[in-house]
Simulated scan of single mutants.
Amino acid sequence: MSNKPILSKSETDWQRLDAMTDEAIDLSDCPEITPEKFAKAVVRHGLPVAKHKAQVALRIDSDVLEWFKSQGRGYQTQINSLLRAYMEAHH
């Protein structure tokens, strides 16, 4: 690692960026987020996770369970993450 001091003044032209319209932003190197990609997103939080997990029998519509299973390994963890996000949003 270098011991060089970090520049204290930004080299970004903030005035030019502030004046830029949405249409002027070049997004050619950013892939579009499609509904299919969004559906595969994983909810992650920096918050501590419960240390103990309880095993429960839970009735879920079969098509919902099959969809989660089709996402691959970790589908139970993904279901837990989504339930946790819902819980935290409704606290």
Rank of each mutant, 00 (worst) to 15 (best):
Q78L: 14
C30A: 11
E66K: 11
L7V: 00
V49L: 15
D13H: 01
W67R: 06
Q78T: 05
E23I: 14
I33E: 13
N3Q: 12
S10T: 01
A24M: 08
L47P: 02
K37C: 06
A89H: 04
V42W: 07
E36I: 00
A41C: 07
I33D: 13
E36S: 14
T77S: 11
S81Y: 00
L27K: 07
L7C: 11
T34K: 10
A57D: 04
N80M: 07
K4L: 05
I25S: 11
K9F: 14
S62A: 13
T21L: 02
E32G: 01
M87E: 05
Q55A: 13
Q78H: 10
A89K: 01
S62F: 00
K51H: 07
P48Y: 13
V64N: 09
E32Q: 10
F68H: 13
D29C: 03
R44E: 13
A50S: 15
S2D: 04
Y86A: 11
A54T: 14
D63M: 05
V42F: 09
Q15N: 05
G74T: 08
E88L: 15
V56F: 08
W67C: 05
E32V: 06
D61R: 15
Q15Y: 05
F68Q: 10
T12E: 01
I60H: 07
L7F: 04
A39E: 14
P35N: 02
E88W: 00
A19C: 07
